[in-house]
Design a protein around this nucleic acid. Structure first.
Lengths: 183, 183
DNA sequence: AATAACGTTAAATAAATTCTGAACGAAATT
DNA sequence: AATTTCGTTCAGAATTTATTTAACGTTATT
Protein backbone atom coordinates (compact mmCIF):
# COMPACT_ATOMS: atom_id res chain seq x y z
CA UNK A 1 0.00 0.00 0.00
CA UNK A 2 1.14 3.55 -0.56
CA UNK A 3 3.15 5.29 2.10
CA UNK A 4 3.00 8.95 2.94
CA UNK A 5 6.43 9.66 1.55
CA UNK A 6 6.83 13.25 0.53
CA UNK A 7 4.24 14.45 3.01
CA UNK A 8 6.08 15.09 6.30
CA UNK A 9 2.99 16.46 7.98
CA UNK A 10 1.07 13.31 7.18
CA UNK A 11 3.94 11.22 8.45
CA UNK A 12 3.85 13.06 11.74
CA UNK A 13 0.16 12.29 12.10
CA UNK A 14 0.79 8.64 11.29
CA UNK A 15 3.54 8.44 13.86
CA UNK A 16 1.31 10.00 16.47
CA UNK A 17 -1.47 7.59 15.59
CA UNK A 18 0.82 4.64 16.23
CA UNK A 19 1.49 5.80 19.74
CA UNK A 20 -2.10 6.89 20.31
CA UNK A 21 -3.25 3.43 19.30
CA UNK A 22 -0.81 1.74 21.64
CA UNK A 23 -1.67 3.93 24.61
CA UNK A 24 -5.40 3.46 24.01
CA UNK A 25 -4.96 -0.29 23.67
CA UNK A 26 -3.04 -0.72 26.88
CA UNK A 27 -5.45 1.41 28.86
CA UNK A 28 -8.10 -1.28 28.73
CA UNK A 29 -7.24 -2.32 32.25
CA UNK A 30 -7.47 1.13 33.74
CA UNK A 31 -11.22 1.02 34.16
CA UNK A 32 -11.96 3.51 31.45
CA UNK A 33 -14.14 3.28 28.37
CA UNK A 34 -12.57 3.03 24.92
CA UNK A 35 -13.69 6.60 24.34
CA UNK A 36 -11.86 7.82 27.41
CA UNK A 37 -8.75 5.82 26.52
CA UNK A 38 -8.75 7.29 23.03
CA UNK A 39 -9.30 10.73 24.41
CA UNK A 40 -6.42 10.48 26.82
CA UNK A 41 -4.11 9.14 24.13
CA UNK A 42 -5.12 11.97 21.82
CA UNK A 43 -4.62 14.58 24.51
CA UNK A 44 -1.19 13.15 25.20
CA UNK A 45 0.05 14.92 22.09
CA UNK A 46 -1.75 18.18 22.73
CA UNK A 47 -0.96 21.02 25.10
CA UNK A 48 -4.60 21.35 26.07
CA UNK A 49 -7.97 20.73 24.53
CA UNK A 50 -11.56 21.96 24.77
CA UNK A 51 -14.62 19.74 24.62
CA UNK A 52 -15.29 20.95 21.11
CA UNK A 53 -11.78 20.13 20.01
CA UNK A 54 -12.09 16.68 21.55
CA UNK A 55 -15.40 16.18 19.78
CA UNK A 56 -13.94 17.26 16.46
CA UNK A 57 -10.70 15.36 16.82
CA UNK A 58 -12.29 12.09 17.93
CA UNK A 59 -15.52 12.41 15.94
CA UNK A 60 -17.62 11.67 19.00
CA UNK A 61 -20.47 13.38 20.76
CA UNK A 62 -19.94 16.20 23.21
CA UNK A 63 -21.66 14.43 26.13
CA UNK A 64 -19.35 11.48 25.55
CA UNK A 65 -16.33 13.76 25.66
CA UNK A 66 -17.70 15.44 28.75
CA UNK A 67 -18.16 12.14 30.56
CA UNK A 68 -14.81 10.84 29.40
CA UNK A 69 -12.82 13.85 30.47
CA UNK A 70 -14.59 13.77 33.83
CA UNK A 71 -13.59 10.15 34.29
CA UNK A 72 -9.98 10.90 33.36
CA UNK A 73 -9.94 13.71 35.88
CA UNK A 74 -11.14 11.33 38.56
CA UNK A 75 -8.14 9.11 38.04
CA UNK A 76 -5.77 12.07 37.75
CA UNK A 77 -4.87 11.47 34.16
CA UNK A 78 -6.25 14.79 33.00
CA UNK A 79 -6.21 18.18 34.64
CA UNK A 80 -8.37 21.17 34.03
CA UNK A 81 -6.36 24.15 32.89
CA UNK A 82 -7.22 27.81 33.13
CA UNK A 83 -7.60 29.78 29.96
CA UNK A 84 -8.08 33.51 30.45
CA UNK A 85 -10.70 35.19 28.28
CA UNK A 86 -12.56 32.07 27.19
CA UNK A 87 -15.73 30.43 28.41
CA UNK A 88 -14.62 27.07 27.18
CA UNK A 89 -13.12 24.72 29.73
CA UNK A 90 -9.72 23.42 28.76
CA UNK A 91 -8.05 20.22 29.85
CA UNK A 92 -4.54 18.87 29.67
CA UNK A 93 -3.29 15.33 29.85
CA UNK A 94 -0.91 14.28 32.55
CA UNK A 95 2.15 13.36 30.51
CA UNK A 96 4.36 12.36 33.38
CA UNK A 97 3.61 8.66 33.37
CA UNK A 98 5.30 8.28 36.73
CA UNK A 99 2.64 10.51 38.21
CA UNK A 100 -0.09 8.61 36.39
CA UNK A 101 1.29 5.36 37.67
CA UNK A 102 1.47 6.68 41.22
CA UNK A 103 -1.99 8.19 41.13
CA UNK A 104 -3.73 5.25 39.55
CA UNK A 105 -2.15 2.32 41.36
CA UNK A 106 -2.03 4.02 44.75
CA UNK A 107 -5.73 4.83 44.52
CA UNK A 108 -6.58 1.33 43.41
CA UNK A 109 -4.43 -0.49 45.98
CA UNK A 110 -5.51 1.81 48.76
CA UNK A 111 -9.11 0.96 47.98
CA UNK A 112 -8.30 -2.74 47.86
CA UNK A 113 -6.46 -2.63 51.18
CA UNK A 114 -9.17 -0.63 52.90
CA UNK A 115 -12.08 -2.77 51.75
CA UNK A 116 -10.36 -6.07 52.40
CA UNK A 117 -8.86 -5.22 55.78
CA UNK A 118 -12.24 -4.00 56.97
CA UNK A 119 -13.91 -7.22 55.89
CA UNK A 120 -11.11 -9.30 57.40
CA UNK A 121 -11.42 -7.48 60.70
CA UNK A 122 -15.12 -8.21 60.94
CA UNK A 123 -14.70 -11.79 59.80
CA UNK A 124 -11.94 -12.45 62.32
CA UNK A 125 -14.11 -11.07 65.08
CA UNK A 126 -16.82 -13.50 64.01
CA UNK A 127 -14.36 -16.37 63.96
CA UNK A 128 -13.20 -15.47 67.48
CA UNK A 129 -16.80 -15.49 68.67
CA UNK A 130 -17.26 -18.93 67.15
CA UNK A 131 -14.09 -20.18 68.81
CA UNK A 132 -15.28 -18.89 72.17
CA UNK A 133 -18.83 -20.15 71.70
CA UNK A 134 -19.63 -23.10 73.94
CA UNK A 135 -22.06 -24.39 71.30
CA UNK A 136 -19.19 -24.88 68.89
CA UNK A 137 -18.12 -28.44 68.19
CA UNK A 138 -14.38 -29.19 67.97
CA UNK A 139 -14.77 -29.39 64.17
CA UNK A 140 -16.35 -25.97 64.02
CA UNK A 141 -13.65 -24.52 66.24
CA UNK A 142 -10.91 -26.04 64.11
CA UNK A 143 -12.49 -24.62 61.00
CA UNK A 144 -12.82 -21.17 62.49
CA UNK A 145 -9.20 -21.25 63.59
CA UNK A 146 -8.09 -22.34 60.13
CA UNK A 147 -9.93 -19.49 58.45
CA UNK A 148 -8.74 -17.06 61.08
CA UNK A 149 -5.14 -18.02 60.37
CA UNK A 150 -5.66 -17.80 56.65
CA UNK A 151 -6.93 -14.26 57.04
CA UNK A 152 -3.97 -13.44 59.28
CA UNK A 153 -1.70 -14.42 56.42
CA UNK A 154 -3.54 -12.29 53.92
CA UNK A 155 -3.24 -9.36 56.31
CA UNK A 156 0.50 -9.60 55.80
CA UNK A 157 -0.05 -8.96 52.12
CA UNK A 158 -2.43 -6.06 52.62
CA UNK A 159 -0.06 -4.40 55.05
CA UNK A 160 2.72 -4.86 52.55
CA UNK A 161 0.59 -3.35 49.81
CA UNK A 162 -0.14 -0.44 52.11
CA UNK A 163 3.60 0.00 52.62
CA UNK A 164 4.12 -0.13 48.88
CA UNK A 165 1.58 2.65 48.41
CA UNK A 166 3.32 4.72 51.08
CA UNK A 167 6.73 4.17 49.50
CA UNK A 168 5.45 5.11 46.09
CA UNK A 169 3.79 8.27 47.30
CA UNK A 170 6.83 9.31 49.32
CA UNK A 171 9.10 8.73 46.36
CA UNK A 172 11.25 6.27 48.31
CA UNK A 173 10.66 3.62 45.70
CA UNK A 174 12.72 5.71 43.32
CA UNK A 175 15.69 5.40 45.63
CA UNK A 176 15.36 1.66 45.37
CA UNK A 177 14.59 1.82 41.67
CA UNK A 178 15.90 5.01 40.06
CA UNK A 179 14.15 6.41 37.04
CA UNK A 180 17.36 6.47 35.10
CA UNK A 181 19.12 3.14 35.11
CA UNK A 182 22.61 2.47 33.89
CA UNK A 183 22.31 -0.68 31.92
CA UNK B 1 -32.20 -7.64 62.33
CA UNK B 2 -31.63 -11.02 63.90
CA UNK B 3 -28.08 -12.24 64.27
CA UNK B 4 -26.93 -15.81 63.96
CA UNK B 5 -26.21 -16.11 67.63
CA UNK B 6 -26.31 -19.69 68.81
CA UNK B 7 -25.45 -21.03 65.34
CA UNK B 8 -21.64 -21.06 65.10
CA UNK B 9 -21.71 -22.80 61.71
CA UNK B 10 -23.90 -20.06 60.30
CA UNK B 11 -21.65 -17.43 61.79
CA UNK B 12 -18.67 -18.99 60.05
CA UNK B 13 -20.48 -18.78 56.73
CA UNK B 14 -21.40 -15.17 57.39
CA UNK B 15 -17.83 -14.31 58.18
CA UNK B 16 -16.61 -16.00 55.04
CA UNK B 17 -19.24 -14.15 53.01
CA UNK B 18 -17.91 -10.83 54.27
CA UNK B 19 -14.46 -11.57 52.97
CA UNK B 20 -15.75 -13.17 49.79
CA UNK B 21 -17.75 -10.04 49.08
CA UNK B 22 -14.76 -7.80 49.65
CA UNK B 23 -12.42 -9.85 47.50
CA UNK B 24 -14.99 -10.04 44.70
CA UNK B 25 -15.64 -6.32 44.91
CA UNK B 26 -12.01 -5.33 44.66
CA UNK B 27 -11.32 -7.64 41.78
CA UNK B 28 -13.31 -5.43 39.44
CA UNK B 29 -10.12 -3.98 38.00
CA UNK B 30 -8.44 -7.32 37.33
CA UNK B 31 -10.08 -7.82 34.00
CA UNK B 32 -12.34 -10.61 35.13
CA UNK B 33 -16.11 -10.97 35.02
CA UNK B 34 -18.12 -10.71 38.22
CA UNK B 35 -18.68 -14.46 37.97
CA UNK B 36 -14.95 -15.13 37.88
CA UNK B 37 -14.33 -12.74 40.74
CA UNK B 38 -16.99 -14.42 42.82
CA UNK B 39 -15.62 -17.80 41.93
CA UNK B 40 -12.10 -16.90 42.96
CA UNK B 41 -13.31 -15.41 46.23
CA UNK B 42 -15.32 -18.54 46.96
CA UNK B 43 -12.42 -20.80 46.12
CA UNK B 44 -10.22 -18.80 48.44
CA UNK B 45 -11.85 -20.58 51.38
CA UNK B 46 -11.76 -24.03 49.84
CA UNK B 47 -8.94 -26.51 49.45
CA UNK B 48 -10.06 -27.33 45.95
CA UNK B 49 -13.26 -27.41 43.95
CA UNK B 50 -14.77 -29.20 40.99
CA UNK B 51 -16.91 -27.52 38.32
CA UNK B 52 -19.98 -29.08 39.86
CA UNK B 53 -19.12 -27.79 43.28
CA UNK B 54 -18.55 -24.35 41.85
CA UNK B 55 -21.88 -24.55 40.05
CA UNK B 56 -23.66 -25.58 43.19
CA UNK B 57 -21.92 -23.15 45.50
CA UNK B 58 -22.37 -20.13 43.24
CA UNK B 59 -25.70 -21.10 41.70
CA UNK B 60 -24.41 -20.52 38.20
CA UNK B 61 -24.20 -22.59 35.03
CA UNK B 62 -21.45 -25.09 34.41
CA UNK B 63 -20.24 -23.44 31.19
CA UNK B 64 -19.96 -20.17 33.10
CA UNK B 65 -17.87 -21.88 35.76
CA UNK B 66 -15.78 -23.53 33.08
CA UNK B 67 -15.08 -20.22 31.38
CA UNK B 68 -14.41 -18.46 34.65
CA UNK B 69 -11.98 -21.00 35.98
CA UNK B 70 -10.20 -20.94 32.63
CA UNK B 71 -9.82 -17.19 32.88
CA UNK B 72 -8.53 -17.42 36.42
CA UNK B 73 -5.98 -19.97 35.33
CA UNK B 74 -4.80 -17.62 32.62
CA UNK B 75 -3.95 -14.98 35.19
CA UNK B 76 -2.46 -17.50 37.59
CA UNK B 77 -5.04 -17.05 40.29
CA UNK B 78 -6.22 -20.64 40.09
CA UNK B 79 -4.33 -23.85 39.55
CA UNK B 80 -5.53 -27.19 38.37
CA UNK B 81 -4.95 -29.87 40.95
CA UNK B 82 -4.68 -33.58 40.42
CA UNK B 83 -7.19 -35.85 42.05
CA UNK B 84 -6.48 -39.55 41.68
CA UNK B 85 -9.44 -41.79 40.92
CA UNK B 86 -11.84 -39.13 39.72
CA UNK B 87 -12.83 -37.91 36.27
CA UNK B 88 -13.72 -34.51 37.60
CA UNK B 89 -11.13 -31.80 37.21
CA UNK B 90 -10.28 -30.02 40.42
CA UNK B 91 -8.96 -26.54 40.87
CA UNK B 92 -7.42 -24.63 43.75
CA UNK B 93 -7.14 -20.92 44.32
CA UNK B 94 -3.80 -19.26 44.67
CA UNK B 95 -3.96 -18.03 48.24
CA UNK B 96 -0.59 -16.44 48.36
CA UNK B 97 -1.60 -12.92 47.39
CA UNK B 98 2.02 -11.99 46.87
CA UNK B 99 2.18 -14.49 44.04
CA UNK B 100 -1.13 -13.22 42.64
CA UNK B 101 0.16 -9.70 42.76
CA UNK B 102 3.38 -10.66 41.06
CA UNK B 103 1.71 -12.72 38.39
CA UNK B 104 -1.02 -10.24 37.57
CA UNK B 105 0.82 -6.97 37.59
CA UNK B 106 3.96 -8.30 35.94
CA UNK B 107 1.89 -9.72 33.08
CA UNK B 108 -0.06 -6.53 32.73
CA UNK B 109 2.93 -4.16 32.89
CA UNK B 110 5.00 -6.32 30.64
CA UNK B 111 2.29 -6.13 28.02
CA UNK B 112 2.01 -2.37 28.45
CA UNK B 113 5.76 -1.90 28.12
CA UNK B 114 6.04 -4.12 25.10
CA UNK B 115 3.18 -2.60 23.15
CA UNK B 116 4.10 0.96 23.93
CA UNK B 117 7.86 0.68 23.37
CA UNK B 118 7.20 -0.95 20.00
CA UNK B 119 4.90 1.88 18.96
CA UNK B 120 7.30 4.49 20.26
CA UNK B 121 10.17 2.95 18.33
CA UNK B 122 8.25 3.10 15.08
CA UNK B 123 6.96 6.58 15.76
CA UNK B 124 10.41 7.90 16.60
CA UNK B 125 11.76 6.47 13.37
CA UNK B 126 9.01 8.32 11.53
CA UNK B 127 9.84 11.52 13.34
CA UNK B 128 13.51 11.14 12.43
CA UNK B 129 12.55 10.71 8.80
CA UNK B 130 10.50 13.87 8.98
CA UNK B 131 13.36 15.75 10.59
CA UNK B 132 15.72 14.60 7.84
CA UNK B 133 13.22 15.24 5.06
CA UNK B 134 14.16 18.23 2.90
CA UNK B 135 10.46 18.85 2.25
CA UNK B 136 9.93 19.59 5.92
CA UNK B 137 9.34 23.17 6.92
CA UNK B 138 11.03 24.50 10.08
CA UNK B 139 7.66 24.28 11.83
CA UNK B 140 7.26 20.65 10.89
CA UNK B 141 10.77 19.85 12.01
CA UNK B 142 10.24 21.59 15.34
CA UNK B 143 7.05 19.65 15.88
CA UNK B 144 8.68 16.35 15.04
CA UNK B 145 11.50 17.11 17.46
CA UNK B 146 9.07 18.03 20.18
CA UNK B 147 7.14 14.80 19.83
CA UNK B 148 10.37 12.83 19.54
CA UNK B 149 11.57 14.27 22.85
CA UNK B 150 8.24 13.63 24.48
CA UNK B 151 8.47 10.00 23.51
CA UNK B 152 12.04 9.87 24.80
CA UNK B 153 10.74 10.91 28.19
CA UNK B 154 8.04 8.30 28.20
CA UNK B 155 10.65 5.70 27.35
CA UNK B 156 12.23 6.48 30.70
CA UNK B 157 8.99 5.43 32.36
CA UNK B 158 8.59 2.25 30.34
CA UNK B 159 12.14 1.21 31.08
CA UNK B 160 11.53 1.89 34.75
CA UNK B 161 8.35 -0.18 34.63
CA UNK B 162 10.34 -2.94 32.98
CA UNK B 163 12.86 -2.76 35.83
CA UNK B 164 10.04 -2.86 38.34
CA UNK B 165 8.72 -6.05 36.76
CA UNK B 166 12.21 -7.56 36.89
CA UNK B 167 12.66 -6.61 40.52
CA UNK B 168 9.30 -8.04 41.47
CA UNK B 169 9.90 -11.31 39.68
CA UNK B 170 13.39 -11.67 41.14
CA UNK B 171 12.10 -11.00 44.63
CA UNK B 172 14.46 -8.05 45.10
CA UNK B 173 11.55 -5.77 45.82
CA UNK B 174 11.04 -7.68 49.04
CA UNK B 175 14.51 -6.73 50.15
CA UNK B 176 13.52 -3.12 49.72
CA UNK B 177 10.07 -3.71 51.18
CA UNK B 178 9.98 -6.77 53.43
CA UNK B 179 6.76 -8.69 53.82
CA UNK B 180 6.92 -8.39 57.56
CA UNK B 181 7.35 -4.83 58.72
CA UNK B 182 8.11 -3.71 62.21
CA UNK B 183 5.84 -0.80 62.77
C1' DA C 1 -23.39 -51.84 23.30
C1' DA C 2 -25.77 -48.51 25.69
C1' DT C 3 -25.78 -44.99 28.88
C1' DA C 4 -24.03 -41.50 31.85
C1' DA C 5 -20.75 -38.13 33.17
C1' DC C 6 -17.73 -34.45 32.18
C1' DG C 7 -16.05 -30.32 30.19
C1' DT C 8 -16.37 -27.50 26.19
C1' DT C 9 -18.45 -25.12 22.20
C1' DA C 10 -22.05 -22.68 19.88
C1' DA C 11 -26.12 -20.17 19.83
C1' DA C 12 -29.39 -17.58 22.24
C1' DT C 13 -30.77 -14.60 25.82
C1' DA C 14 -30.24 -11.28 29.37
C1' DA C 15 -27.85 -7.70 31.37
C1' DA C 16 -24.78 -4.06 31.39
C1' DT C 17 -22.27 -0.53 29.26
C1' DT C 18 -21.23 2.96 25.92
C1' DC C 19 -22.43 6.51 23.24
C1' DT C 20 -25.85 9.47 20.91
C1' DG C 21 -29.37 12.94 20.31
C1' DA C 22 -32.60 15.80 22.68
C1' DA C 23 -33.27 18.82 26.14
C1' DC C 24 -31.99 21.72 29.85
C1' DG C 25 -30.10 25.52 32.83
C1' DA C 26 -26.80 28.98 33.41
C1' DA C 27 -24.04 32.44 31.73
C1' DA C 28 -21.99 35.13 28.07
C1' DT C 29 -22.79 37.68 23.91
C1' DT C 30 -25.42 40.35 20.82
C1' DA D 1 -34.40 41.40 26.12
C1' DA D 2 -33.28 37.97 23.02
C1' DT D 3 -30.11 34.84 21.40
C1' DT D 4 -26.15 31.99 21.52
C1' DT D 5 -22.82 29.24 23.73
C1' DC D 6 -21.32 25.88 26.89
C1' DG D 7 -21.36 21.88 29.68
C1' DT D 8 -24.40 18.67 31.77
C1' DT D 9 -28.43 15.63 32.38
C1' DC D 10 -31.68 12.49 30.61
C1' DA D 11 -33.70 9.06 27.79
C1' DG D 12 -32.98 5.96 24.29
C1' DA D 13 -30.41 3.30 20.85
C1' DA D 14 -26.65 0.60 19.82
C1' DT D 15 -23.13 -2.21 21.15
C1' DT D 16 -20.77 -5.17 24.04
C1' DT D 17 -20.42 -8.36 27.63
C1' DA D 18 -21.95 -11.97 30.63
C1' DT D 19 -24.44 -15.87 31.38
C1' DT D 20 -27.60 -19.50 30.15
C1' DT D 21 -29.34 -23.21 27.39
C1' DA D 22 -28.72 -26.56 23.97
C1' DA D 23 -25.74 -29.46 21.87
C1' DC D 24 -21.52 -31.86 21.22
C1' DG D 25 -17.42 -34.99 21.63
C1' DT D 26 -14.90 -37.79 24.55
C1' DT D 27 -14.37 -40.97 28.05
C1' DA D 28 -15.84 -43.71 31.93
C1' DT D 29 -19.35 -46.61 33.76
C1' DT D 30 -22.92 -49.87 33.55
Amino acid sequence: MSKATGRPDVKIEEAKDKVIGAIAETMDLYGVTPAAANLYATMYFEDQMTLDEMRTELGMSKPSMSTSVRRLQEIDMVKKTYTRGSRKHTYAAEKNFFRSFMAFYCQMWEREVKINLAAIKEAQEDFIEVIKDSHSTPEIVAKAKKYYDQLEESKTYYHWLDDLVENIRSGRIFEFLPKEQKD
